[in-house]
């Protein structure tokens, strides 16, 4: 029998992750990604089979160019695989239309990027509200409240009116995390979230992610170059030349 997703009142207080551990959240089946240029064909991922369960915190490591960022892009439906099937929460999404993919990204997934990718012309609050803009039927008031709650979680409620250029690197990444959280996604995909930060700020960000995983049961996949960070997560996957090696 499949474990249920609903939290029973009797179990309130128990780490949500434990309840969900054996249900696949992201499933990659025979995934291939080949990049074509005029002259060369580069295999970025070679028949990858991988399951990330609900509530897991997985880190992905490997040398540059091994395909780990490609893997993350495919999991986040930011790119299409050349072959194979991707399942998110039990549904094969490979044949989804642009609209359906956008809906899955909006409701289920939150992204954190190494270079933050904040929109410099928008205030901190507007940046965090961004995912909610694409949610049908949500009022401006609710958007604002949810964005403020997300900023509260990352400790930046005092900076709502600031612009990204007025913040430090660590603060920017926290804004990016708040943006990823605003839509209350079940999955967070983080591509080297601490890569542009010094170790103190990196630790702060890592603590935030660990807290999210433990307290809210959010499934997190994090690409990193940092062994220390990777060892803080439950599972470590290593990639080499487009294939999973451990």
């Amino acid at each position: 029998m499949e474990p249920t997703l609903t939290k029973s009142p009797l179990l309130t207080g128990a780490p949500a992750a434990i309840l969900l551990k054996n249900t696949p959240m992201i499933k990659l089946l025979d995934i291939e990604k080949v990049y074509h240029t005029d002259t060369i064909e580069t295999v970025a991922l070679n028949r990858v089979n991988l399951t990330i369960n609900k509530g897991e915190f997985v880190s992905v490591m490997g040398p540059s160019g091994c395909g780990k960022s490609t893997l993350l892009s495919l999991m986040g439906l930011l790119d299409e695989p050349t072959g194979g099937t991707i399942e998110i929460d039990g549904r094969a999404v490979t044949s989804y239309s642009d609209k359906e993919l956008a809906r899955v990204r909006n409701h289920k997934i939150g992204f954190i990027f190494q270079s933050f990718h904040l929109i410099n012309d928008l205030s901190v609050l507007d940046n965090v509200e961004l995912p909610l803009l694409y949610r049908a039927g949500m009022s401006g008031k609710e958007r604002r409240q949810r964005a403020q709650a997300a900023l509260e979680k990352v400790g930046l409620i005092a900076r709502t009116k600031h612009f990204p250029s007025q913040l430090s690197g660590g603060q920017r990444q926290r804004v990016a995390i708040a943006r990823a959280l605003a839509g209350a996604p079940e999955i967070i995909l983080a591509d080297e979230p601490t890569g542009n930060l010094d170790s103190v700020m990196g630790d702060e960000i890592m603590d935030l992610l660990l807290g999210l995983n433990r307290q809210e049961g959010t499934t997190i996949v994090m690409v990193t170059h940092d062994e220390n960070m990777a060892h803080k997560t439950e599972r470590l996957i290593r990639f080499f030349d487009g294939s999973q090696v451990s």
Binding site: L78, A102, R105, N106, H107, H117, L118, L130, L133, Y134
Partner: peptide, 16 residues
């Protein structure tokens, strides 16, 4: 381009 990528990543459709 980066803004477009972010918007798409967070759920904007081509039409939007």
């Amino acid at each position: 381009s980066s803004e477009i990528g972010v918007r798409k990543a967070f759920g904007a459709t081509g039409g939007k």
